[in-house]
Nucleic acid binder design. Structure first.
Length: 418
RNA sequence: GUGGCCGUAGCUCAAUGGUAGAGCCCCAGAUUGUGGUUCUGGUUGUUGCGGGUUCGAGUCCCGUCGGCCACCCCA
């Protein structure tokens, strides 16, 4: 038996890495005063059918439940967020600055950087129209990546604005029904032959190609980049109007983070979706919103790729898995006394390990070393004294068992005092 | 969903169609209370699975499952 295709087992090392990623995500989000929330993993399929564009439905991990309901494992969080906000918005001051860390699913053939399950950080600002919110959110995205040790040499956030294109469509009298379709064509233009794109664009082909080549420009994008420059983040961003993103609900600024080497797919992406709460509440409510998501899979690959990030991650994992004290039971008749003190030490919050069964002393010290213990306490012939060994310096001293707790506390606060 | 490549021990990989191996890991020892070294010994495979060709298949053929890559799509 093995895990289903596209689903991962997290062995201790993988789990430690994942937890480390979550910790950074949470830490930086909190730095921006975002608050954490969570929604259900399973939603009515209907929630995704209309709101995310029809293309998403083929990729849903969906089924009929025992109550004959059409349900889907969530492929993304934004529709849930819009639903929840529409229902509870009066309970909160605006703007809402919410983040969430959760697992998402898609039913697709897996390949590298793309599984059937992954974890995502979602950060959203709801109820603020001002471009300041867009700037804040992009800055947050950059800072999250910086927290992993990445620099402007490692990644770039490409920023675009869908209004830049919809303005062009309007000027050229393109009916609004065709906008989504044309945006998809522009989104795809970098990945397919020019002739094919030109054919789909029709009379818009020439102006669109001209803009994609020259770069395009808009006051809004300039202000956005200027805002990031003032925060000292200029080197992390680039305007790229070719970025459109696939989801239908985006209405304004859209952005994606890529590794500079261009080796992986997008690390993170997001944008403005000002109409989604209105759609999901049948126009009972309309709140502007902007958000982004960052997945653990591509991020994890990039961490492995960049030495600085990989070493930082490794260091954090090593330090987190360390225990404080290993209890060496050198004489089995002292086991009960040792266990009494193990309980007391654990009650004080120390990480303690010991051998559950009679084991050679050498093996016990080996285990102490492997688990990264700072101290070893040896229970044997010295009783009622305990031998305390500093595993880094190999220095030993004898301490009466009833003075042990104080002595250990002193050492662990100030290594070197034993 | 379509196409190409691949599938041997827990991991990394050997084996001109002729008896399935190595390293690492793991476990146990080296006169019985001290840790990254060393030495010795030990466990593990229906060669992904199922058919077929052949005197004989890890090796060739077909199917299937799984993995990788590209397409599709991208949350």
């Amino acid at each position: 038996m093995q895990a289903l295709p596209g689903f991962r087992d997290f062995l201790p090392e993988g789990c430690a890495k994942r937890n480390c990623i979550f910790a950074r995500w949470r830490e930086v989000s909190r730095r921006y005063a975002f608050v954490e929330w969570e929604g259900p993993v399973l939603e009515p399929t209907e929630l995704y059918k209309k709101k995310s564009g029809s293309e998403i439905v083929d990729q849903l991990f969906n089924f009929t439940d025992k109550g004959e309901r059409e349900v889907a494992m969530r492929p993304e969080l934004t529709p849930t967020l819009a639903r929840v906000v529409a229902a509870h918005e009066r309970e909160f001051k605006k703007p809402l600055k919410w983040f969430s860390i959760g697992q998402f699913f898609r039913y697709e053939k897996q390949q590298r950087g793309r599984l059937r399950e992954h974890f995502q950080l979602n950060c959203d600002i709801i109820g603020e129209n001002d471009l300041a919110a867009d700037i804040e959110l992009v800055a947050l995205c950059i800072d999250v990546l910086r927290a992993f040790g990445f620099t402007e040499k490692d990644f770039v956030v490409r920023i675009s604005d869908r209004e830049f294109w919809t303005d062009l469509f309007r000027e050229n009298n393109v009916p609004a029904e065709r906008w989504d379709e044309l945006l998809q064509v522009i989104d795809k233009s970098g990945r397919e032959p020019r002739e094919k794109t030109a054919e789909k664009l029709g009379h818009l082909a020439d102006p669109v190609f001209a803009i994609l080549k020259s770069g395009g420009q808009s006051e809004k994008l300039d202000k956005l980049v200027d805002g990031l420059c003032r925060r000292g983040l200029a080197d992390f961003v680039a305007i790229d109007v070719g970025i459109v993103r696939g989801l239908a609900y985006y209405t304004g600024i859209v952005f994606e983070a890529f590794d500079r080497a261009g080796k992986f797919r997008a690390i993170a992406g997001g944008g403005r979706y000002d109409n989604l709460t209105a759609q999901l509440s049948d126009d009972a409510l309309s709140l502007p919103a902007i958000g982004f998501a960052m997945g653990d899979v591509v991020l994890g690959e990039l961490i492995n790729e960049i030495p600085r990030a990989r070493e930082a991650m490794q260091k954090a994992i090593t330090s987190d898995r360390k225990i404080d004290i290993y209890i060496v039971i050198a004489k089995e008749e002292r086991r009960t006394d040792a266990l009494t003190q193990i309980q007391q030490l654990r009650d004080r919050g120390y990480r303690i390990d010991y051998s559950l069964t009679p084991t050679k002393v050498a093996r016990q010290f080996q285990a102490a070393e492997e688990e990264g213990a700072s101290l070893a306490l040896l229970y044997g012939d010295e009783w009622p004294q305990v031998k305390v060994k500093n595993l880094a310096t190999r220095a030993e001293s004898l301490i009466s068992h009833d003075a042990l707790l104080d002595s250990v506390a002193k050492f662990l606060n100030m290594p070197g005092s034993v």
